[in-house]
C-alpha cells in the first residue's frame, strides 16, 4: 500500500483513539495526565530494557504501558493521601520517574539508543516503514496494529460501560452513595488513556498524542454543550479533519508531520475560540480565577 495512504490511516486511528479516551480525561479535569504519561513512560522503557536485557519492542511497549498505568494509579493515590491537587501529584510522579529514567540511561544504557528523543518528538512519516515481521510475511506497519488494538479497547470499553462512565464522571459522590464504585471507573478511564497514549507514542510522538487527547475535545466543547456523546463525535470529526490539514501543510512546508498536525490543532482551536468568544462573550465568571 502506498505509504501516503498508510500515513492517513495511522493518523486516523490515532485521532479516533485519542478523541475517545481524551474526552473522558478532559471531562474529569485531568488533562495533564497525557503529558505526564508521555514523560514517565521513559522509565518503563528503560526498566523493560534492563530487565529483559534486550531491546525488543513487545517488552518495551509493555514497560511503557505499565509505567503509564502506574502513573495514573499512583497519582490518584498520592492525591488522596496527601490531600494535594491532582496536578501537583502528577508533577511529583512524572518528574521523579523521568529523572530516575534518565539516570538509569546514562549509567546503564548509554550505548543503546533507546530513542528517547524519538519518544518525545516522534515521527509519523516513518511509521509506515516500521513493519512487523511475523515469520516470513510482512504484516504491515506495526503502528497500525497497535493503534487498532487501542482503538478497539476504547470502543469496547466506552460502548459497554457508557452508563457507568457518564454517571461516575459526572457525580462521583452520588454514585458512590448508591453503591457504585466510582473510583474503579475513574481508574478504568485512566488506564484507557494510558493504553491509548502509549500505543500512539511510538508512531505519532508524545507531542501529538497530548494534543490529540485534549485539543479536539475542547474545540468540540466550544460548540456542543449538552451531550457527552455529541462532544465525542464532534471531537472525532475535528480530529480527522485537522489531521488531514496537518499532513497537507507538512508536505507543503516540508516540516515534521506530527508536529504540524499538533500545531494545526492548536491554531484551529485558538481561532475558533476567538470567534466564539467574539460572537458570544462569556457570562461573568462565577468564581474569580
Amino acid at each position: 500500500m502506498d505509504s501516503i495512504y498508510l500515513l492517513y490511516i495511522i493518523a486516523l486511528l490515532a485521532s479516533l483513539s485519542c478523541a475517545l479516551s481524551g474526552t473522558l480525561l478532559t471531562v474529569q479535569k485531568k488533562a495533564m495526565l497525557g503529558d505526564a504519561i508521555s514523560h514517565s513512560a521513559l522509565l518503563g522503557l528503560v526498566l523493560a530494557y534492563l530487565i529483559s536485557g534486550e531491546r525488543s519492542i513487545p517488552y518495551m511497549f509493555l514497560g511503557a504501558l505499565v509505567a503509564g498505568i502506574g502513573t495514573a494509579y499512583v497519582t490518584e493515590k498520592l492525591k488522596n493521601t496527601l490531600h494535594i491537587q491532582y496536578d501537583a501529584a502528577l508533577g511529583v510522579i512524572f518528574t521523579a520517574s523521568f529523572a530516575v529514567a534518565v539516570i538509569l540511561i546514562s549509567q546503564y544504557a548509554r550505548q543503546v539508543d533507546l530513542d528517547a528523543q524519538h519518544l518525545l518528538f516522534g515521527e509519523i512519516a516513518l511509521a509506515p516503514f516500521d513493519t512487523i515481521l511475523f515469520g516470513n510475511s510482512d504484516l504491515g506497519p506495526r503502528a497500525i496494529w497497535t493503534l487498532s488494538l487501542a482503538l478497539l479497547c476504547n470502543i469496547v470499553v466506552i460502548t459497554l460501560c457508557w452508563n457507568r462512565l457518564k454517571a461516575t464522571l459526572f457525580s462521583t459522590n452520588s454514585m458512590q452513595a448508591i453503591g457504585i464504585k466510582a473510583q474503579y471507573w475513574q481508574q478504568l478511564c485512566s488506564i484507557l488513556v494510558a493504553i491509548t497514549a502509549v500505543s500512539a507514542f511510538e508512531s505519532v510522538g508524545a507531542i501529538l498524542v497530548v494534543a490529540l487527547l485534549v485539543i479536539p475535545t475542547n474545540t468540540a466543547k466550544l460548540f456542543v454543550k449538552h451531550s457527552l456523546l455529541q462532544t465525542i463525535i464532534i471531537s472525532l470529526v475535528i480530529s480527522l479533519i485537522t489531521s488531514i490539514q496537518g499532513i497537507l501543510i507538512s508536505f507543503w512546508l516540508d516540516t515534521a508531520v506530527a508536529a504540524t498536525i499538533a500545531t494545526s490543532l492548536f491554531v484551529n482551536f485558538l481561532i475558533l475560540s476567538l470567534i466564539q468568544n467574539w460572537i458570544y462573550p462569556s457570562k461573568a465568571n462565577i468564581q474569580t480565577s
Binding site: T26, K29, K30, A31, M32, G34, D35, Y86, D87, I207, V210, A211, L213, V214, I215, T217, N218, A262, T263, L265, F266, V267, F269, L270
Partner: peptide
C-alpha cells in the same frame, strides 16, 4: 487543566 495542556502541546 485543559488550558495548560493545550498551550503546552501547542
Amino acid at each position: 487543566d485543559s488550558a495548560l495542556a493545550i498551550v503546552l502541546s501547542g
